[in-house]
C-alpha cells in the first residue's frame, strides 16, 4: 500500500511541476509579452562565467532558505494542528453552546488582519518600543543562543497559524458534530450511557478516519500565506526567494520555489493517506 501511495505522490508531484511550467509560460509569455520561453535554456541565468561559484552560491541559498521556511512551517503547521484538533474536540463537546463559533472566533478575527501588515506592525513596534531593529534581516546573532531566529520565525508563522487554526477548529468540530447527530447516539443516550462515554468512546473513535483526512487541508493555505509574510518581514525563506523570482522574472527561482511547496504538500498528503489506510485496516 505504501509503495502504491508513494507512486501516486510522485505522479502528483510531476503534474504539479508540469502545471507550474505551464503557469510560468502563460504568465510571462502569453500575458506579460516576454520573449523568453520557459523551455528555452537561454531564458535562465547565464552560469558560464564563474560557473562553480554561482552554482555553489545558488545551492547554499536554497538550502538556507529551506531551513528557514521549514522552521516557520513547523511552528505554523504544528501550532494549527495542535490547537485546531484540541480546541475542535472541545468545541464539539460544547456544541449545544455554539462552541465551534465561540472557540474559533478569536482566530477568525485575527484572520481578518492582513498577515503582511501584522509583520510590519511588529517591526514598527520593535523599532519604537524596544529600540532595536525590527525586520528579520536587520540583525544577526553571531554568538550565544540564537533566540532571534526563533522570534523571527514566530512572527512570520503567527498570522498564518491564526487563520489556519480557526479553520481547523471549525472543520474538526463539524466532523464530530455530524457524527454526534447520527441516530445511534440518541439510542446510546436512551440506553443510559453517559454523555462523556458516548462522545469519547463512540463518536470520537468512529470519526477518527474523517479527522485524519483533515490533517493536510490547511497546508497549501499556510504555504501561500507564508510566501508574502516572509517578503514583508524580509525573512530569508523560500517565500521571499519565490516573490523576488517572480518580480524579477527569474524562472529558476520561481520553478524551484513552486516545486519546493508542491513537495511539502505531496509529503503531507502521502502521510495522511498512509495513516488513513492504516486506520481503515485496524
Amino acid at each position: 500500500m505504501i509503495l502504491h501511495r508513494l507512486l501516486i505522490a510522485v505522479i502528483r508531484l510531476g503534474i504539479a511541476a508540469a502545471f507550474l511550467i505551464l503557469l510560468v509560460e502563460v504568465g510571462y509569455v502569453l500575458l506579460g509579452g516576454a520573449d523568453r520561453h520557459v523551455w528555452d535554456l537561454s531564458s535562465y541565468r547565464d552560469h558560464s562565467a564563474g560557473a562553480e561559484i554561482v552554482v555553489t552560491g545558488w545551492g547554499d541559498k536554497w538550502k538556507s532558505a529551506s531551513t528557514h521556511t521549514l522552521l516557520v512551517l513547523a511552528l505554523a503547521y504544528g501550532g494549527a494542528l495542535l490547537v485546531g484538533y484540541i480546541w475542535g474536540v472541545l468545541a464539539a463537546r460544547w456544541r449545544r453552546m455554539g462552541g465551534k463559533y465561540l472557540l474559533s472566533a478569536i482566530f477568525s478575527a485575527f484572520a481578518a488582519v492582513p498577515p503582511f501588515w501584522f509583520a510590519i506592525a511588529v517591526a514598527i513596534f520593535s523599532y519604537f518600543s524596544w529600540q532595536r531593529p525590527g525586520f528579520a534581516d536587520d540583525w544577526v546573532v553571531d554568538q550565544g543562543p540564537d533566540v532571534l531566529s526563533w522570534w523571527n520565525a514566530a512572527v512570520v508563522a503567527l498570522p498564518a497559524m491564526a487563520a489556519a487554526t480557526g479553520w481547523q477548529i471549525r472543520a474538526v468540530a463539524e466532523v464530530l458534530e455530524k457524527e454526534a447527530g447520527l441516530p445511534y447516539v440518541r439510542g446510546l443516550f436512551y440506553s443510559g450511557y453517559s454523555d462523556e462515554n458516548i462522545f469519547y468512546g463512540n463518536v470520537f473513535r468512529r470519526s477518527l478516519p474523517d479527522l485524519v483526512a483533515l490533517i493536510d487541508s490547511t497546508l497549501p493555505f499556510l504555504l501561500g500565506c507564508i510566501i508574502y509574510v516572509e517578503w514583508a518581514f524580509r525573512y530569508a525563506g523560500i517565500g521571499r526567494l519565490f516573490v523576488e523570482g517572480v518580480r524579477q522574472g527569474i524562472y529558476e527561482d520561481i520553478l524551484m520555489g513552486g516545486v519546493w511547496m508542491a513537495i511539502v504538500v505531496c509529503i503531507a498528503r502521502f502521510c495522511r493517506e498512509v495513516i488513513a489506510g492504516l486506520l481503515k485496516k485496524s
Binding site: 497549501p220 510566501i227 513552486g258 508542491a262
Partner: peptide
C-alpha cells in the same frame, strides 16, 4: 497541490 496564492502571484 500548488498553493493558490503561488499560482496567483506567478
Amino acid at each position: 497541490i500548488l498553493p493558490a496564492m503561488a499560482v496567483l502571484i506567478v
